[in-house]
Amino acid sequence: MNDPVSTFKLFGLTFNVGNMISVFVTSVVVFLLMFFLSRKLRLVPTGKQNALEMMADFTNNIVKGSLDKDTSRAFSLYAFVLFFFILISNQLGLFIQLTYNDVSYVKSPTADPIVTMTLALMTLMLAHFAGVSKFGFKGYFSNTYLKPFKVWLPLSIFEEFTNFLTLGLRLFGNIFAGEMLLSVIMNFAFSHGPITMVIAVPLTLIWQGFSVFLGSIQAFVFVTLTSVYISQKIEVEE
C-alpha cells in the first residue's frame, strides 16, 4: 500500500499536499458545523442549540469522567474540538476520496499516521504541561516517574512512549484499515464488470456503516484516553 504522494519541501521540511488538503477540509467542515450550530444562541435552547449543547455535554462528560470539576473545565474545549476533529476526519474518507493521477488529495486525514501522531503528541504534551504547571517540575517528575517505586523509573519512561505510540497508532490503524478495505472493495467492484459491481454495492454499504461506527468509537476512545492521560499527570499517585 505504498501509494504515491505529492510532496514539496519547505525550510527543510517535507509537506504532503494531499494530507494537508484533507486536514484543512476537515478543519473547515468542523468549523462550519460549529459555526452553523452556534448561531442565535438563546437562554432557552431550541433546535440547533440543543444539538450543540448535547454535543458539548457529551464531551464534557467524557472529561468529567476522569478529571475533577475545575480541571475538566480547563480541558473541555480541547476535548470538544479534538472529538469532533477526529470524528469528522474519520468520516471524511468514507464519503469523499478525491484521487488525481493515483495521488489521493482528499481522504481521512486520520488514515495517515503523521496526523494521529500529531494529535497524540499534542495530547501528551498538554498532559505533561498540565502536570508541570500543577506540581512544578520536581513534583511532576517525582509524581510521574518515581512513584510508586523509584526502581520503576525506566519502566515509567518507557510507558510514556508506549502511551504516545498506542494513542496515535490505535486511531491510525482503525481508520487506515477501514479505508484500505473500502478501496479493496472498490478494486473488486471494478475488476469483473457489472456483476462484481452489483455484489460490491451491499459490501460497501455494510463496511461504510461499520466504519462510521468504528470512527465514532475511535474518536470517543481517543478523547477518553486523552482525559485519562491528563488525569494521570495531574493527580497525586498513592
Partner: peptide, 9 residues
C-alpha cells in the same frame, strides 16, 4: 512528513 506535523498542529 514533518511539515505535516506542524501543519496539522
Amino acid at each position: 512528513y514533518t511539515g505535516n506535523l506542524l501543519f496539522t498542529a
